[in-house]
Design a protein around this nucleic acid. Sequence first.
DNA 1: TTGAAAGCGCTAACAG
DNA 2: CTGTTAGCGCTTTCAA
Lengths: 333, 333
Amino acid sequence: MSVTIYEIAERADVSSSTVARVLRGDVKETQVRSATNANKIRKIAREMGYRPNRLARAFSRGKTYGIGLLYTDDAWIFEGVNMTVVNSLVRELQSRGYHLVFVPIDESNAWKDILLGGQIDGGLVFQELPGDVRNALDEKELPLVMLGDNSDPTVSQVVVDDFAGAYAATKHLGGLGHERIMLYVHDSIKPHCSIGERRRGFDKAMEDLGLASKASFLHSTEEDVIHCLQHGNSRPTGVICYSNLEATLLVHAMWQYGVSIPKDLSIIGFNDIFATKYMTPPLTTVGFDAERIGVYGARMVVEEIDGENTGGAPQVEVIKPKLIVRGSTARFR
Amino acid sequence: MSVTIYEIAERADVSSSTVARVLRGDVKETQVRSATNANKIRKIAREMGYRPNRLARAFSRGKTYGIGLLYTDDAWIFEGVNMTVVNSLVRELQSRGYHLVFVPIDESNAWKDILLGGQIDGGLVFQELPGDVRNALDEKELPLVMLGDNSDPTVSQVVVDDFAGAYAATKHLGGLGHERIMLYVHDSIKPHCSIGERRRGFDKAMEDLGLASKASFLHSTEEDVIHCLQHGNSRPTGVICYSNLEATLLVHAMWQYGVSIPKDLSIIGFNDIFATKYMTPPLTTVGFDAERIGVYGARMVVEEIDGENTGGAPQVEVIKPKLIVRGSTARFR
DNA sequence: TTGAAAGCGCTAACAG
DNA sequence: CTGTTAGCGCTTTCAA
C-alpha cells in the first residue's frame, strides 16, 4: 500500500493530525516549534514518497472533485469546436484540483447512479437537459453551468453572441452585393437556442440592408436546399450555414453540380476548426475563441461549488465571435 | 444528506450489513426469511430513494473505478478518429461501472497526484509514455493498455494493422497503373509506431508491384512535398498520406496550384472521418472501426484490474482496416 | 499549534 | 443468512 499520514506521524513523532495539517499547509509556522516540526514532517513525507490519497480526502470532505459533463447527444459534444472546449475544460478543472466526468444521458440509468450516488459536485452542459436530469441535479443541489446555451436564465452560463455573429456574416454578404441570402440549418440539427439567435441576427441584418423580403430561411433537408439553390431565377446567391455540417455538405454538393464557389455562390460557415481553413475553397466563417468557453465554464462551476459566488445570481459570460473572411465569399456580379 | 444503509437498516429492523448485501445482490434468497427481508429492504430503499454512495464504496473497496486516459499530445487525442475511440471508451467503461479520467501529462505535476494519489485503477494510452510516467504506473502496479500503438510488447494493446492498410492502399494505386508513388508523413507528426508499420506495408507492396525503385518516402514539410510533386519529370503520380492532416493539406495545396485530383494526382488518406467523405473530391482512404478500439480497450483494462486476465500475458487485439475507395484516386493515364 | 477522538458510508472478515 | 466489529485515510471538532 501507499504511505499514509500515520506512518509519517510515527516517524516524526507527532500526531497524524499535525502531519495532515502541515502537509496541507494549514499551519502558519509562526512559532519555532511548529516550523521545526513542519520541516521535519515535510522532509519525511518527501523521503517516503507520500501522496495524499485523493479518494480518502474527497470522501472525508464530502466532496468528489468530479464535475460531470452531461450530454444527450454525442455527435454534438464530440464535434470539432466543442472538443476544443472540452480540452480546455479538462485542463482548467485539473488546475483547480477537479476532474471532468463524462456523463452520457441515455436510457440506461447510469447517469442516475452518478448524479445521485454523489460522484460529482457539479455539472456542465452544452444543451438543455431533460427534466428528470434537472430534477436530479436540483435534488442534490448540484450547481450547473451551461456552455454555449442561454436557454435557461436561472443557471450560470457562458454563451457566444450568435446574434452578432450571424449579423456580421449577413452584413458581409450584403456588403459584397448579395441580395438574396439564405440561412441554412440542416434538419438533423437538434433544437438549440443558437438557431434562434442566429436567425434573429440574420433577420436584423437583412432588414438593415433593406433586403428583408429577399431573405430565405430554411430548416431543411439537403435536397431541398440544393434544389432551391439550383432552380428558379430568384435563387439565393449567398448562403449562411448554421454550422460546419451544412457548409461541408453544401460545398460538396455544389462541387458535384459544378457550381463554382465563390464565383457562382458565396458560402459562410459557423465555427472555425482546423479543416475549414483548408477546404476548397477555404471557408469564410464565424469563429470564436472556444478555449475561453472552457476556461470560464470551469471557473464558474468551481466557484459555485466553493461558494465563492456569494450572490447566488447566475453569472453570464459572453464570448464575442468574429468573422473570418476567406475564400468562399465573393462579390456578387 | 443522502440516505444511507443505516437509515434503511433501522427502518427494516435489520443490520446495515444485511441492507448492504441485499442491495448489492449478495444474497441468494433461498430461505423464506431472507427473501422476506430482502423484499422489505428493497422496498424501503426504493421509498427513501437510496443510492449507494459511490465514493464511499470505492474508498472502502480500495478501488477508484477511474481509468486514466494518459496523453502528452492533445492534438492527437482530440482529433477525429480518436474522439470516436474516446466516445466508445466512455460508454463501455460506464457500462462496467468505471469512468474515464483525462490525464494530460505536462510539466505540472498534476498527473503525479492523480496516479500516485490513487485516483485511478488503470491507464489507457494512445502513445508511448515518458519514462517517469511508466515508472509511476509500475510503482502503483496499475495496469496499462495501449490503443493503436504496439511499441511496447509488455503491455496489452489493441492495434490497427497498419501494415495491411498501407499495403492495400499502395496495391490499389499500383493496380490503377501508378508507378511513382509517395508516402507522405508531415513533419509535425510525432514519432509513432504506425509510421514504421505503414512504411513497411508501403515498401512491401511496392516491391511486390516491382516498383521498389520508384517509391519515395518522405517525412517532410509541406513545402518540400509540394515542390517534389510539381517539379521534375519523375514526380509521383500518387500519394499515400499518413493521416487526414496530410490529405487535407495536400488537397488544398493542389487546388491552389491548379493540380486536378484525381486526374493529375491520386491521393489516399488514412482514417475515415465524416469530413473525408465530403472533401472535394471525396477522399479514398484507409478506414477502420474506431469504436471497436474503445470497446476492446475498455474491456481489457477492466479485466486486468479485476484480475480476470489470469495468465498475466499481455493481450493483443488487432483491428483490420479496409480501403474505402472514393473519388481521389483514378487510373494513371 | 497540537493531540485525541469521532466520523464520512460502505466493505469485509468472523462468529453465530 | 445475519449481526458484530473493524477498518479504508483523511478531516474536523474540541480541549489542552
